[in-house]
């Protein structure tokens, strides 16, 4: 096989998988242009009578709060979460992966342990903490955990990546008289960029889509992020506007998509290309 043929085969295979993969996304886009009442139970990809009314209703906002307010809240939460999570998880990850100190094994086990308990039983005790601290209806309960590396998933992810970095780096740096801060900042962090980018992407998306946290901790409609606003189109005791909800949820996807597009290319430049310049 020539490289050219191989390349064609590659593209055909990738596109074939993509068609299957993106069909549901296409259906959702179709649904957003379908009259609201016809959406559930509709089986076709393309709406019989396309309408923009769903988007018009979504754009109206909810109860006098404009749609931009929901976007703004979501962006603020997501961006601050990314900053907090990357900073705190990178620090914790570095400590677990590269440093030796008393209690490390125990603390690492505790961290993994926090992954194992279903979060539903933590909801009430955590709510009590923030309620007593008078932090309800602020963003603090949604953000403070991100700055304190409470998401073991990310710490562990960074640990696993940092452990793949050659030990000799530390030794070389030590011989150069490098302190831990400089070693961390100048050598380990740049080399861990794929991991940090991964953490940023996930944090952004997961925060963006988080529903339960904002539901419990935010009260005022002006503070709602998008997922809470979306849910407002639905009520099982009266009527539900699925069209407006789907339309708004697709609009809500645009910033995440942009974020992913902007950041995914940094995934490419790992150790292999940006290299051991240290």
């Amino acid at each position: 096989m020539t490289t050219r043929v191989r390349s064609v085969v590659w593209h055909v295979a990738a596109l074939a998988i993509l068609v299957v993969l993106l069909y549901p996304v296409a259906w959702t886009i179709g649904a957003s242009f379908t009259p609201s009442r016809d959406i559930v139970g509709n089986l076709e990809l393309f709406p019989a009578t396309p309408t923009g009314a769903n988007y018009a209703r979504a754009a109206e906002g909810i109860a006098g709060v404009s749609i931009w307010s929901f976007f703004r809240n979501s962006v603020v939460l997501a961006v601050l979460s990314v900053i907090g999570t990357v900073a705190s998880s990178a620090m914790a990850g570095y400590a677990f992966a590269r440093l030796r100190f008393r209690g490390r094994g125990l603390m690492f086990t505790m961290m993994i342990g926090t992954l194992l308990l279903p979060f539903h039983v933590m909801i009430i005790p955590q709510y009590i903490i923030f309620q007593r601290a008078g932090l309800i209806d602020t963003f603090v309960p949604l953000l403070i955990g991100k700055f304190l590396a409470t998401e073991a998933f990310f710490v562990f992810l960074i640990v696993q990546f940092m452990r793949t970095l050659p030990r000799e780096l530390d030794e070389a740096a030590t011989i150069d008289g490098c302190g831990h801060l400089r070693l961390f900042w100048n050598i380990i962090l740049p080399l861990s960029r794929p991991a940090l980018i991964t953490v940023s992407i996930f944090t952004f998306i997961w925060t963006w889509n988080d529903f339960l946290g904002p539901l419990l901790y935010l009260n005022s409609p002006e503070n709602y992020p998008l997922p809470i606003a979306l849910q407002a189109f639905i009520d099982q005791t009266t009527t539900s506007d699925y069209g407006a909800m789907i339309a708004m949820s697709l609009l809500a996807l645009i910033p995440v998509l942009l974020f992913f597009l902007a950041f995914q290319r940094y995934l490419v430049e790992g150790v292999a290309t940006s290299g051991m310049k240290g």
Binding site: I124, Y127, L215, L216, N219, S220, Q236
Partner: peptide, 25 residues
């Protein structure tokens, strides 16, 4: 008035949590 609204199911999840934590509206 500080209003707060959600769908029926979410309403009860939130209210139960708030009430357990002493933060009933």
């Amino acid at each position: 008035i500080t209003p707060n609204f959600s769908d029926f199911a979410e309403y009860w999840q939130k209210l139960n949590t708030e009430s357990a934590g002493g933060g009933t509206p």
